[in-house]
Computed example of a mutant assay.
Amino acid sequence: MLEINKLAGYFLPCKITVYRDKGKIKVGMPKPSVLLRSLNNEELNTISDEIERRLMSAIQKSI
């Protein structure tokens, strides 16, 4: 991603937050697809969509 646009580094690495709220464990993250759309680069959009899909899959498998 950085080879495509160095500004993508502002959004990397993707953060995942795990916390307890009212007795329930919650997992969340800012969506890479939303963050990287601000760079207006179709190639980055495609990559960020795939990254988001993989992260969401990992989160779903962990809960």
Score class of each variant (00 low, 15 high):
M1W: 06
L2Q: 12
L2S: 13
I4W: 04
I4T: 11
I4C: 07
N5L: 00
A8H: 00
G9V: 09
G9I: 11
G9M: 08
G9S: 08
G9W: 09
G9C: 08
F11A: 11
L12S: 05
C14L: 09
C14P: 03
C14M: 07
K15P: 00
K15M: 05
I16Q: 06
T17W: 03
V18Q: 06
Y19Q: 12
R20V: 15
D21I: 13
G23E: 10
K24Q: 12
K24P: 00
I25S: 10
V27E: 05
V27G: 10
G28L: 15
G28Y: 09
M29K: 07
M29F: 10
P30N: 15
P30Q: 14
K31A: 15
K31F: 03
K31L: 10
V34Y: 07
V34H: 05
L35K: 06
S38I: 13
L39M: 09
N40S: 09
N40Y: 03
N40D: 13
N40R: 06
N40H: 10
N41C: 10
E42G: 03
E42A: 08
E43C: 01
E43S: 04
L44Y: 01
L44N: 01
T46W: 01
T46Y: 05
I47A: 09
S48L: 07
S48K: 02
S48H: 02
E50R: 08
I51V: 15
I51E: 00
R53S: 13
R54K: 14
R54L: 13
R54I: 13
L55T: 11
S57M: 08
I59K: 03
Q60V: 07
Q60E: 14
Q60F: 06
K61M: 11
S62G: 03
S62D: 02
S62T: 06
I63L: 14
